[in-house]
Amino acid sequence: MAKRYIQRHSLQTRITHGLVMGSCVWLMISGLFVFVPYFANIGSGGLVQFMRISHRVVGVILIAAPIISAIMAPKGFKEFLGKYFKKWTPEDFEFMKKFVPYMLGPKRVHMPDQDEVKSGQRIADGMLIIGGIMMAVSGVVLWLGLSVFHAPAGVITVMRFVHDLFFLVLVVFVVAHAYLGAGVFQPYRKTKQLMFGNGQVAESDALYHWGFWAREELEKGDNVVER
């Protein structure tokens, strides 16, 4: 019997995610060369200068990729916002209440059905988006304010604080996102297929992770693929 899959992410979404992920990783690595004194002293300065300049070039990719993607697919962007800014159901609250016990005991704690984006996912992804925006704004002010403009010292210091603070926030949420999204956490195995494969989720996994959404999609059938 043919197995059924649901197309969850489009090629454009996966490419945008890939660009953001790649730039995010590079920005974290290159940022460490300025943030941590040990790294700042590696080599004779040339390596660190390269990292610092690459931080700016890659920063442009991080900012531009989602904006261009949103302009290319305005309908998709609107839908994306709708999935995140929506009223919480009782199941959403239950999911959050059970989240920590579930993470430390997935064999005994069972999660309730969820819509297309889980409540925890909405919080975590929301923090990634807010963090990304704060990093982008503070980064651009730091960049331009210390190169082509001579921004007031107070503004630069506040922006440095914002950049450092959200780096800290992002490290937590990026690592947690990767732990779940890449399927290191055992109940989430195969989820990496969603962004790094063909964007499809198997029927059984969809029913487990996003019960409400999976049943709705299977009933509609528009995004269901059999093979």
Binding site: K107, V175, P187, E203, S204, L218
Partner: peptide
């Protein structure tokens, strides 16, 4: 924070080792 995070996620990983669930269809 990084050490605490890696420790916490490491514990989470260990509790999930051997996890299996039956295949379902709708």
């Amino acid at each position: 924070g990084a050490i605490a995070l890696v420790g916490g996620l490491g514990l989470s990983f260990l509790t999930g080792v051997g996890y299996k669930r039956p295949e379902m269809r709708y």
